[in-house]
Write a protein that binds this DNA or RNA. Structure first.
Length: 213
DNA sequence: AACCAGGAGACAT
DNA sequence: ATGTCTCATGGT
C-alpha cells in the first residue's frame, strides 16, 4: 500500500509542474518602461490584457506614458483614452494617484525594503494588495508571490488549503515561498504560468489535467 | 445573454 | 473580520 497521508506539494514542485504542463503563451507583462508597468498594473484591474493594450496604445500615441504629461492631462482626456479597459472614472483617478506616488517615491525606492515599499504603495487610493505586488514584482523587481484569484484556486487545487482572500493566502503561505528561495525572475514567470494555467483550467473545466502532469 | 476578466473601495453587518 | 454593492467595458 502506498502512503496514506496525501502529499502537499511545495511551491517549487507546483512551479515545476506548471513549467511542464503549461505552454508558454508569449511575452508576459510587456512594457517599454517602468512607468508603463505601473500604468498597466492599474489598468488591468478586473480586465483582460487585450483591453489594457488598447488603452496603453491610446496613452502612448498621446505621449501620456510619462509621469509629467499624465498628471497634466485633463481627467476627461484620460478617461476617454483608457475607456477600453473599463472603470474609466475610477482608474483615471487611480492613475493620477499612483503617478503622484511615482514622482515622490521612485527615485528612492531602490533603497527601501520590500515590506516598507509595499506599505507605501498600499497607501495610494486605488492600489490594493494585488496591484501593489504586481508593481513590486515587475517594476521594482522584488521577489514576491502574487496570490491572485487564479493563484489561490491553483493552491487550493494543489491541496494547500482554502483561501478566501488575498491576505489570508499571503499570511498562511508567504513564509514557505521565502524558504524556497525563489528569484524575482522565477516568481514573475510563476505568475505568468499561473494566469495561463487559470485560463486553461477554465476552458478545461478544472485543474486536474494541469496539476497531474 | 448571463457571466467573467491579470480588483479595489465604501459601506453594512 | 466577513459579505455585498458599485464601478464600466469587452469578449465568450
Amino acid at each position: 500500500m502506498g502512503k496514506v497521508t496525501s502529499e502537499v506539494p511545495t511551491f517549487r514542485e507546483i512551479y515545476e509542474t506548471l513549467e511542464r504542463s503549461v505552454q508558454d503563451a508569449g511575452k508576459w507583462w510587456p512594457a517599454e518602461t517602468k512607468f508603463e508597468i505601473l500604468v498597466g498594473a492599474v489598468l488591468t484591474q478586473n480586465t483582460t490584457w487585450t483591453s489594457v493594450e488598447k488603452s496603453l496604445e491610446n496613452l502612448r500615441v498621446h505621449d501620456l506614458l510619462d509621469p509629467g504629461n499624465l498628471l497634466k492631462s485633463p481627467q476627461e482626456t484620460l478617461e476617454s483614452l483608457i475607456k477600453p479597459s473599463g472603470f474609466m472614472r475610477a482608474k483615471a483617478g487611480y492613475l493620477k494617484n499612483l503617478t503622484e506616488w511615482y514622482k515622490e517615491n521612485d527615485a528612492t525606492a531602490d533603497a527601501i525594503d520590500t515590506q516598507t515599499l509595499r506599505a507605501s504603495l498600499l497607501n495610494v487610493k486605488g492600489i490594493g494588495q494585488e496591484t501593489a505586488d504586481d508593481i513590486l514584482l515587475y517594476a521594482y523587481l522584488r521577489p514576491v508571490f502574487i496570490y491572485d484569484t487564479y493563484g489561490r484556486r491553483l493552491l487550493e487545487a494543489a491541496g494547500l488549503g482554502s483561501f478566501k482572500t488575498y491576505d489570508a493566502a499571503r499570511n498562511a503561505l508567504d513564509e514557505r515561498v521565502y524558504e524556497q528561495g525563489f528569484t524575482t525572475e522565477e516568481l514573475a514567470r510563476f505568475h505568468g504560468l499561473i494566469v495561463q494555467a487559470g485560463k486553461d483550467a477554465r476552458r478545461a473545466g478544472g485543474w486536474e489535467g494541469i496539476l497531474k502532469a
